[in-house]
């Protein structure tokens, strides 16, 4: 049997591998090369060494402030979406009436594109802010920050909830029943049985939320556009603006993108290590 599978290995893997190489590996290494160049289009690249990278790490008003803002969004965003999604998943696996309808409703926002969500929430939040405070989202970066957090939660909770529901449903009823017979209360069951057993889902969900937060662009663009004065620009937006808004800065933008990729890679690897170590078989 094993041998038969091995024989078909190229047929099944090669197309994907080829697509991966063409659409990811080659562009990645081209990008890496370009980050050391001064260029406008790929054909006109000139090697300039490390100067692009030196600029990136001195760019306190651009890259570094965007990085700090992104970290703030990621920390609160990852925790809040996961806690809320897990709470909803617990609620919707209790066999309440209308569970399926609610699951569908909570999942729906995830199907709407980020740009549209951004504009919808901009209207909603501006409507509230203008009535309550007489100002709009562009007034203060704190408004923009919480706007992004609210929008992100609204969009992502349903998606993560589905993953958690699958995890909770796969817990065998026998274990829960045994816990009950042993006299465990609900909090004990949750802490000692349910959470350890859905640890794989937690790994998946934190990974998804974390990489999502770091890569966020469309929601950011549509909701705040970086206003006021780029104080709410996240990493992806700062990279885009660097690339296009100054003459001769494509190389710096590319260098920022490389730093960004490495950063996301390292952070998600660390996160995977930590949560995986807590998983139980």
């Amino acid at each position: 049997m094993q041998k038969n599978y091995k024989k078909y290995f190229p047929i099944f893997v090669l197309p994907t591998l080829l697509a991966f190489i063409i659409a990811f590996v080659i562009p990645f290494f081209m990008g890496l090369y370009l980050s050391f160049c001064n260029f406008k289009t790929i054909g006109s690249a000139k090697w300039v060494g490390l100067s692009n990278y030196l600029y990136v790490f001195r760019d306190s008003a651009g890259f570094l402030s965007a990085l700090w803002f992104t970290v703030k969004v990621a920390v609160v965003g990852v925790v809040s979406t996961n806690v809320l999604a897990f709470a909803l998943a617990l609620l919707l696996t209790k066999g309440l009436k209308g569970t399926n309808v609610y699951r569908t409703i909570f999942f729906m926002p995830n199907l709407i594109g980020g740009i549209i969500l951004g504009y919808i929430w901009q209207l909603l939040l501006n409507g509230i802010l203008i009535r309550v405070a007489g100002v709009d989202l562009t007034f203060n970066s704190t408004f923009g920050y919480w706007g992004i957090i609210i929008l992100y939660n609204w969009q992502k909770i349903g998606y993560l909830m589905i993953i958690y529901i699958a995890g909770i449903q796969s817990i065998s009823g026998d274990i829960l029943e045994a816990a009950k017979i042993d006299g465990a209360n609900y909090v004990q069951t949750l802490k000692k049985i349910i959470i350890p057993l859905v640890m794989t889902s937690i790994t998946t969900c934190t990974f998804l939320a974390l990489t999502d937060c770091f890569k966020m662009y469309d929601q950011n663009l549509a909701l705040t556009g970086g206003a006021p004065a780029n104080q709410t620009a996240m990493l992806a937006m700062d990279i885009f603006n660097t690339y296009y808004n100054r003459t001769g800065f494509a190389g710096v933008g590319q260098a920022k993108a490389v730093v960004f990729t490495v950063l996301v890679l390292v952070i998600s690897l660390i996160q995977l290590r930590i949560t995986q170590s807590k998983e139980v078989e």
Binding site: I130, G134, V135, D136, L137, T138, A227
Partner: peptide, 8 residues
């Protein structure tokens, strides 16, 4: 409009 709302 009011000057404070021109950002919208």
């Amino acid at each position: 409009i009011e000057p404070s709302l021109v950002g919208t």
